[in-house]
Design a protein around this nucleic acid. Structure first.
Length: 487
RNA sequence: GGCCCCAUCGUCUAGCCCGGUCUAGGACAUCAGGUUUUCAUCCUGAAAACACGGGUUCAAAUCCCGUUGGGGCUGCCA
């Protein structure tokens, strides 16, 4: 535990797009940490950029995080003692602190035009210097600034970055040092009622009594700036942990160009939230032992900030697929059927019993929920196929296999299968009845045409399983069709 | 360019903090074999890595320095 302060962490998505799985992973690590430590997990919507933020995206993010399996103790949808949890509703709080900084001469209005700033930047770059604000407006008198503001002149608010060395502890990387003279006076607000994330975040983390900020590595260089702002405002410092980034296969920061990055797309592609959860937890973190498959509870038990990786991790879709397949295999057919309803034609749902039996049989062949549609289509409607499909495509050493022989074998099977009572019509009994025949007539010679005739496909589950799913009546019907095709 | 972060099989990683037990372990992917009428599952096996160079030490994947490589940031986005 962290002294006597209750551990509080937050996830702070910006509703400027659909839920990105990088955001989901950051949220996941925060959640894991909070749950493992008995702390609070807060959802805060960072919508200070009103131009790009939208309520639709906020909804998408919240729904996505719920689907993913996370829950939070405080947030815009559930309330809490430190609300509101939407930054756009906390403007007076930021204004108060902004004004305080100005009053204390720790911040000032800057009237430089964008064009001027761009010129400055180019000039510094040309000299091989790190571009930073020139400080032109830094020493404007308060009277003058206020007069210009009153006149309606456009201004932003800049923070007087002290020329010192800033240090902070990163729980994953250790002590990090930055030379603040290189930072320059950063803009912290467009105006008193429009703060920038660097400022609003620092204020909210304090106001919401956040103890640990766990976020992506891309924020490392923002941290010294926020530390300086916290100090200027007399806030307690929070502890930081910067997570390694999730990388695209080309090792660059994930962007839409290389991969689908929206969590919802993965849902639509038929990935299970549990698999995604497990997969993302393993990206940049690893347990003590060699376990690969974890429930959320097990993850909470095992989770330790110290076992987080420092280097970026490539998103490996292969491993996700494998994990997803593992999870699918563990689900009971009835439950899996329930999850599959949105991925199949609605007619398939007419015969619920048939549907569930089909799911049971195809379960271990599926990697994604979307696979089911192609895998199981033949159960619901026999595809049209060519007679040749029924002939065992066997190595030439067995030459005798031909149309005639196949026809005879199918007739034999039809006769034998007809004898089995409807009540006994299951895979085990069917196998018991047919396997002895294969000892006389050959396995492939009998089983291939059987299976092909039942499925109408080159690839499918085994014939006994198919027959059980289809039932006696449909099985016989399909066999007769096969026989007709050969006659 | 500047600042910062990072560096074990193709990928995710164990080992590194507290040097010897590492002829570097596991998983995914790949390949081969087995089970099998087909596919998938499952089982067995193979190939596959300590970026490089210096140091410290009896001993370095492990500690230090440098090089190289990769990444992030460098916005009145977050």
């Amino acid at each position: 535990m962290d002294g006597f302060r209750k551990i509080r962490v937050r996830m702070a998505p910006s509703p400027t797009g659909p839920l990105h799985f990088g955001t989901a992973r950051t949220a996941l690590f925060n959640w894991l940490f909070a749950r493992a430590q008995g702390g609070d997990f807060v959802l805060r919507i960072e919508d200070t950029d009103i131009e790009r933020s939208s309520p639709e995206y906020e909804k998408d993010i919240i729904n996505g995080l719920k689907w993913f399996g996370l829950d939070w103790d405080e947030g815009p949808d559930v309330g809490g003692n430190y609300g509101p949890y939407r930054q756009s509703e906390r403007l007076e709080i930021y204004e108060k602190y902004l004004q305080k900084l100005i009053d204390e001469n720790k911040s000032y209005y800057c009237f430089c035009s964008k064009e001027q700033l761009e010129l400055d930047r180019q000039a510094m770059l040309a000299q091989g210097l790190a571009p930073k604000y020139s400080g032109r407006c830094r020493n404007l008198s308060k009277e003058e600034s206020e007069k210009r503001i009153a006149n309606g002149e456009k201004a932003v608010i800049r923070f007087k970055t002290p020329g010192i060395e800033v240090e902070f502890i990163d729980l994953i990387r250790g002590k990090l040092k930055f030379d603040a003279t290189l930072i320059g006076d950063i803009v912290i607000a467009r105006n008193l009622r429009s703060p920038l994330f660097i400022f609003s975040g620092a204020v909210d983390d304090f106001e919401m009594k956040i103890t640990h900020v766990i976020r992506g590595e891309d924020h490392i260089s923002n941290t010294p700036k926020q530390v300086l702002i916290q100090r200027a405002l007399g806030f307690d410092e929070v502890k930081y942990a910067h997570l390694p980034l999730i990388l695209a296969p080309n090792r660059t920061k994930l962007s839409k160009r290389y991969l689908e990055t929206s969590l919802n797309d993965y849902r639509k592609q038929g990935y299970l939230p549990e698999a995604m959860f497990n997969f993302l937890a393993l990206l940049g973190w690893h347990p003590k032992d060699e376990q690969e498959i974890f429930s959320a509870e097990e993850l909470i038990k095992e989770f330790d900030l110290k076992r987080i990786q420092k280097a970026g991790a490539i998103f490996d879709i292969n491993k996700l697929e494998w994990l997803n397949g593992q999870y699918i295999k563990k689900i009971k057919p009835v439950d899996l059927a329930g999850k599959l309803t949105e991925f199949v034609p609605s007619e398939w749902l007419n015969n619920k019993e048939l549907f569930i039996r089909a799911v049971a049989v195809e379960k271990e062949r599926m990697k994604k929920l979307t696979d089911f549609k192609e895998l199981a289509d033949f159960f619901f409607e026999l595809p049209d196929y060519k007679a040749e499909l029924l002939i065992w495509p066997r190595p030439k050493e067995i030459e005798k296999i031909n149309k005639e022989k196949t026809l005879n074998n199918l007739k034999l099977l039809l006769e034998e299968i007809s004898k089995i009572f409807k009540a006994d019509f299951n895979a085990a009994n069917l196998e018991k009845a047919i396997i002895p025949l294969t000892e006389v007539w050959g396995r492939g010679e009998l089983l291939w045409p059987l299976r092909a005739g039942l499925s109408g496909k080159e690839i499918s589950p085994g014939p006994f399983e198919i027959m059980e799913v289809l039932g006696k009546e449909e099985t016989l019907r399909r066999l007769k069709i096969a026989i007709e095709k050969l006659e």
